[in-house]
């Protein structure tokens, strides 16, 4: 028994060596700090003898640090918002990123294609603060471009930052605008890597461009699509703080459609700065993601082992 596992180890020696550097990194930079998550269960108070002694001497409060996430009627709203936005981002993001990648590959002029690609990548560089300023310059009641436009058509100026019903569309649009270019790069690279002989064979069979895309390109991308989607599912309880805080300018009247778990936690802990509670919130978000990933990975594994995460 022991010799068998030793043999197995020896056979995999070289591959284990390849894994080693990053594995050590994971231990140091991910797994060790994870032990600090125990803060989520204490009322963290500083102790003059450093971090460990602080944890040790802090009061154990069980699950009390988690309570604020579930206590009020807001709990439902923030959970609903976080999940629904993420679902929209996952589905629309996937469709658009793949579509854009296919489109860029098919454009005949390489130079133009590259230019478009660079252009679509640009929004990724703008921070949410900057994006927030642009959205404001576009939507602001007095000077905003959009209200100037609508006033031409004789419509009343709208106070966009007081109208929650438009924000789901605005936020989804902005998210896609910012990230689709970035995400499409992965698909673009994947299309480039598809075995050329597959297309040749298809052409010999007389398949047109559309058929090639449907029967070769997309199936070849499923593996990447599945993996990226699985990873996104793992973060479904996390929201991009900047998008939901900077872009709506923290306008209270919009909370019903813009408050998400991350903004709720930020606002709630801004003054008290309780480490225990912020750690608890993160742990909760991670835990839900973990359960979802395990479940969906299990399902994916049943269908196609190659597309599973592990």
């Amino acid at each position: 028994m022991l010799s068998r596992s030793f043999k197995r180890f020896r056979q995999n020696k070289m591959l284990l060596l390849m894994v080693l550097p990053a594995a050590i990194w994971f231990v140091l930079f991910s797994y060790l700090p994870m032990a600090g998550s125990v803060i989520a269960f204490v009322e963290y108070r500083y102790d003059s003898n450093g971090f460990l002694s602080s944890i040790w001497n802090s009061k154990w409060v069980g699950l009390r640090n988690f309570e604020f996430l579930f206590q009020t009627s807001d709990a439902l709203i923030i959970t609903r918002n976080t999940v629904l936005y993420n679902l929209a981002f996952i589905v629309l993001g996937l469709v658009l990123a793949v579509a854009l990648a296919v489109l860029l590959v098919e454009i005949r002029n390489r130079r133009m294609s590259k230019t478009y690609q660079t252009a679509m990548f640009m929004p990724y560089f703008l921070s949410w603060v900057i994006v927030g300023y642009f959205v404001f310059s576009f939507l602001s009641t007095s000077k905003g471009l959009l209200n100037q436009l609508t006033s031409w058509f004789g419509l009343d100026a709208l106070n966009w930052y007081a109208e929650p019903k438009y924000w789901p569309f605005i936020l989804v649009f902005i998210y896609l605008w910012k990230f689709v270019g970035y995400n499409s790069i992965m698909y673009l690279a994947a299309i480039m890597g598809i075995d050329g002989s597959l297309y040749e064979a298809a052409m010999i069979d007389g398949a047109g461009k559309w058929k090639q895309i449907v029967h070769i390109t997309l199936p070849q991308l499923t593996s990447l699509m599945t993996i990226l989607t699985l990873l996104a599912v793992g973060r479904i309880f996390y929201a991009d703080f900047g998008l939901f805080y900077q872009v709506p300018r923290d306008s209270g009247l919009l909370y019903s459609t813009t408050n998400v778990i991350d903004t709720y936690v930020y606002r709630g802990l801004k003054t008290s700065g309780e480490f225990g509670m912020s750690t608890a919130a993160g742990l909760y978000q991670s835990f839900v993601g973990f359960v979802l990933v395990i479940t969906s990975n299990y399902i994916v594994r049943k269908i196609n082992k190659d597309n599973a995460l592990f």
Binding site: L15, A23, F26, S30, Y31, P33, G36, S37, G282, F290
Partner: peptide, 27 residues
């Protein structure tokens, strides 16, 4: 690779859970 599944999980897990700012700072 015999330990394929283990090391895949080992990596994925770090995307789901993180230790937070202070513990990382200490390490």
């Amino acid at each position: 690779f015999a330990y394929r599944k283990f090391f895949s999980f080992f990596a994925v897990f770090t995307m789901l859970f993180n230790g937070g700012m202070v513990p990382t700072y200490i390490v």
